[in-house]
């Protein structure tokens, strides 16, 4: 294995630690603080159905401020774990030989993604409780039809489809069109189909399904839908490129670059997923007045 690959891996892994455990968590922390400080449970009880049901207004205001701090601390701890991993690798003279380093990388990345996944799960539960406790008798809807291509350009979608076709054709070609569990072709095909069925279901549910947040204004729902659709399409593109690169490296017996590619892939997922979410939905533009105790009170 050439030395520069190891040096490159260290830089790429450092960049992963920075992007996933500092840069994006910091952005999310700022968003959370903006919301909890400007829209506290005492004035905006509909935004915090669990807290307002459980605690007094004053205590709920205190409790809600603890969330962003906890989130930030968890991410800083994960960042520290990453730096320790690099230090251990440097001390022990670690080299990329595809002997389990990918598993450590995958576990560490799962740890990096876990705060945001937990945040999403808690958000899902919060919205479910919002729907249960919603007592508004009025309901609003936009009289504009929503179409898939309102959220992603046909060119980008076409590129995603093209890359899936290219990857599956390439996979079949390098395996002499032999489809079986033994050579891993069937595993990859099932993975590709499974992931895309999941994306399709997610898009259908988010764009054409029932409203998750019963109070959210329609203008604020659209950026969320755009995030889901574009993240799914971009992830599909990144996944096809990543799998193709892996297959090529495998053909040339360059297993030592697998960890490097994995790290790049995870970073691409973060940039496409979290980055798109932050870009398409500015927190300052969201209408939080819909969560007030009495919306008529200014």
């Amino acid at each position: 294995m050439p030395d520069f690959i190891l040096v490159l891996f260290y830089f790429v892994f450092l960049s992963q630690i920075f992007i996933l455990s500092y840069y994006y968590p910091q952005k999310f922390y700022q968003r959370m603080r903006y919301v909890t400080e400007n829209f506290p449970p005492s004035k905006y009880p509909k935004l915090y159905p669990r807290l307002t049901k459980k605690y007094t207004a004053a205590y709920a205001d205190e409790a809600v401020r603890a969330g962003p701090v906890k989130y930030r601390r968890i991410n800083l701890f994960i960042l520290l774990v990453g730096l320790i991993l690099i230090a251990v690798a440097l001390i022990t003279g670690f080299s990329l030989q595809s002997k389990g380093e990918e598993i450590i990388l995958v576990f560490y990345t799962a740890l990096q993604f876990s705060p945001i996944i937990l945040l999403e799960i808690s958000d899902f539960k919060r919205m479910s409780l919002m729907r249960k406790t919603n007592q508004d008798s009025t309901r609003k809807a936009d009289l504009m039809p929503r179409r898939f291509f309102d959220f992603v350009s046909p060119v980008t979608f076409g590129l995603a489809v093209f890359l899936v076709v290219v990857y599956t054709s390439f996979l079949l070609y390098i395996n002499d069109f032999e489809v079986s569990w033994d050579n891993g072709v069937l595993v990859m095909l099932v993975t590709i189909i499974g992931v895309h069925v999941y994306f399709a279901a997610l898009i259908k549910w988010q764009v054409f399904g029932k409203k998750m947040d019963p109070h959210l204004a329609n203008k604020d729902r659209l950026p969320q839908m755009k995030t889901i659709v574009s993240t799914s399409v971009y992830t599909s593109i990144a996944m096809s490129i990543f799998f193709m690169a892996l297959a090529v490296m495998d053909e040339f017996d360059m297993h030592y670059v697998q960890a490097l590619l994995l790290s790049l892939y995870f970073q691409a997922l973060a940039i496409f997923g979290l980055g798109t979410m932050l870009r398409s939905s500015r927190i300052e533009d969201i209408d939080f007045e819909v969560y007030r105790k009495d919306p008529t009170v200014a």
């Binding site: 609003k140 809807a141 936009d142 039809p145 054409f208 029932k210 409203k211 329609n218």
Partner: peptide, 15 residues
């Protein structure tokens, strides 16, 4: 002008 589909409008209005 196009109108939303029955399903979209029903889901949005929770009807």
């Amino acid at each position: 002008d196009a109108l939303p589909s029955i399903r979209q409008l029903a889901n949005d209005l929770e009807l």
